[in-house]
């Protein structure tokens, strides 16, 4: 594995590894909760980046895979009493399969049409699930309290969920790195730059795009299951929030799309900023507006994002930051 000798690989991996270990050593519930949210967004942003950053397809409704996967995993868990980790992985598999099917159709669209279609997919899924009785319709599903007994109570269950999330996010980032540096990833980058030219060079674009879409849907499905299990319930509004979907895009953009480390620090920075604005007495009421101003400034003046900017500015950093 050449990756093991690369700083660009170790930087995000160690970052997440040490972060999780730190939370496990301090063992505070509040720290865990905060880290859970942050790590979740790191995972979501990194998976979105596989499609958005590497392949160049702007998925506006990407949260649909968090919702569909989360719902499915939650359903396996609460209705069929499957173990948490297995349910989560199954949630991811369902997500990936649905992405494959949806992708076959919508990945034929390009640019803004694709973005619009993904919004439509998310809204259609939200509306459908609200009417889908096995998933509890508009009220959603709840965790059966007896599930916690297997973990030795709700407290340990939450810690276990955190550890699963931490590991999944770690794997997400590793996979993101591996894809970017693989032959498959080179094909994706070629599609991002010029899909027609890539096909003329032999890149089997329809298959590559669909695979990228499936990868970027798998992890949100797993993460969704863990998140809703932690919350104890899942309902359509939480699962298919278009707002959260766009926040994922913002995080990727903030850190630098198409880079491995970018979505990681983008997610942390965005959530950090949001947390600060929400708790600051001065900005509390205007937090959304200020976040908006901040986003606008980034889009207008630093469109490459933090890591992208550093890579552009200091060519030597290209070998270090990936």
């Amino acid at each position: 594995m050449k990756a093991l000798q690369r700083f660009g690989f170790w930087l995000p991996v160690l970052f997440i590894l040490i972060w999780g270990l730190y939370i496990l050593t301090v063992r505070q519930d509040s720290a865990r909760e905060q880290a859970f949210t942050l790590l979740m967004f790191v995972g979501l942003a990194s998976s979105l980046n596989i499609l958005l950053g590497y392949t160049g397809y702007v998925s506006f409704g990407h949260i649909v895979f968090f919702g569909l996967g989360g719902y499915s995993g939650f359903y396996f868990l609460s209705a069929h009493n499957l173990p948490l980790l297995l349910s989560a992985l199954l949630g991811g598999v369902v997500s990936a399969i649905l992405a494959g099917l949806i992708g076959l159709a919508v990945l034929r669209l390009r640019g803004a049409y694709f973005a619009l279609a993904t919004i439509g997919v998310n809204e259609a899924a939200r509306a459908f699930v609200s009417n889908f009785e096995p998933f509890g319709g508009a009220t959603g599903l709840f965790v059966n309290y007896s599930v916690y007994q297997g973990f030795g109570g709700p407290g340990p269950a939450l810690w276990r969920t955190f550890i699963y999330l931490w590991l999944i996010v770690l794997i997400t980032v590793i996979i993101s790195y591996v894809i970017k540096n693989s032959r498959f990833g080179l094909g994706l980058l070629a599609i991002r730059e010029d899909e027609d030219a890539a096909m003329v060079m032999g890149v089997k674009a329809p298959r590559a795009k669909t695979l990228a879409f499936m990868f970027s849907a798998f992890f949100p499905g797993v993460i969704g299951t863990l998140y809703f299990f932690k919350n104890g319930n899942v309902e359509p509004g939480d699962a298919f929030s278009l707002h959260m979907s766009i926040e994922m895009l913002v995080m990727v953009m903030l850190g630098g799309m198409g880079t491995v480390f970018g979505p990681v620090i983008g997610a942390v920075a965005y959530q950090g900023l949001r947390g600060f604005l929400l708790t600051s007495p001065l900005f509390k009421n205007l937090h959304l507006a200020i976040a908006g101003v901040f986003l606008l400034l980034i889009v207008l003046f630093v469109p490459a994002g933090a890591i992208g900017w550093l890579r552009e500015r200091f060519l030597k950093l290209r070998k270090v930051l990936e």
């Binding site: 080179l186 980058l189 030219a197 890149v203």
Partner: peptide, 14 residues
């Protein structure tokens, strides 16, 4: 139609 944001070598590697 070069792949603008890739290096020259990466272009040829495609």
């Amino acid at each position: 139609r070069p792949l603008q944001e890739l290096t020259v070598r990466e272009n040829v590697m495609v």
